[in-house]
C-alpha cells in the first residue's frame, strides 16, 4: 500500500485515508491480545505494578547470576549481563545455531522512585524477577478529612 503523503492530496482522498487509519486502529485494538507485544530491546520485560511498587520479570535463559548486573538509580532500573557460548568438543560441527550469545543492557524507567535498599532479585529457571518497592517518601500521602 502506498504510504507516502502527497502534498496536493485532495480533501476526499484525505478523508478516505483517515477512515482507513481509523479502521486499522479499530482492527488493531481487536487483534491486540493475539498479537506479539511491542518490544523495545533485549531482554523483553514485563512490568507488574501496585501502589507499593513494581515487579519486573524478564526471560534470560542460560544467563548465570554471576554474569548478571542489576542497578537501580532513582526511578531507573538497568539490567545488564552476558551469555556465554557453549564450549564445543574438538571436531564438533553445528547443524543449527539460533541461540545468540553476547552481552546485553536494558534500562527501564519506572513511574516512581525506588527504594534501592529494598530491591530484591531472583533467577529461577531462566526467569529473572526483580521486586522494586516504591520509596517511602515518594508514596502518595493520604489526607484524612476531618468531620467537624
Amino acid at each position: 500500500m502506498l504510504q507516502r503523503q502527497f502534498r496536493g492530496m485532495s480533501p476526499m482522498w484525505r478523508e478516505m485515508e483517515q477512515l482507513r487509519r481509523e479502521m486499522d486502529r479499530l482492527w488493531g485494538e481487536l487483534a491486540a491480545p493475539f498479537e506479539a507485544p511491542a518490544l523495545r530491546g533485549y531482554p523483553a520485560m514485563n512490568v507488574w505494578m501496585n501502589e507499593n511498587g513494581a515487579v519486573v520479570t524478564t526471560e534470560l535463559p542460560g544467563v548465570l547470576s554471576d554474569n548478571l548486573d542489576i542497578n537501580v538509580a532513582d526511578n531507573t532500573l538497568t539490567v545488564s549481563g552476558s551469555r556465554k557460548p557453549e564450549e564445543l568438543e574438538e571436531g564438533a560441527t553445528y547443524h543449527r545455531r539460533e541461540r545468540a550469545y553476547g552481552t546485553f543492557t536494558r534500562s527501564f524507567q519506572l513511574p516512581f522512585k525506588v527504594d534501592p535498599q529494598k530491591v530484591e532479585a531472583s533467577l529461577n529457571n531462566g526467569i529473572l524477577t526483580i521486586t522494586l518497592p516504591r520509596a517511602e517518601e515518594d508514596k502518595p500521602k493520604k489526607i484524612a478529612v476531618r468531620v467537624s
Binding site: A44, M45, N46, W48, N50, A54, V55
Partner: peptide
C-alpha cells in the same frame, strides 16, 4: 497483588 502494567513478552 500486582497487575500487569507493561508487557513485552507472553
Amino acid at each position: 497483588g500486582y497487575s500487569l502494567a507493561w508487557a513485552e513478552y507472553r
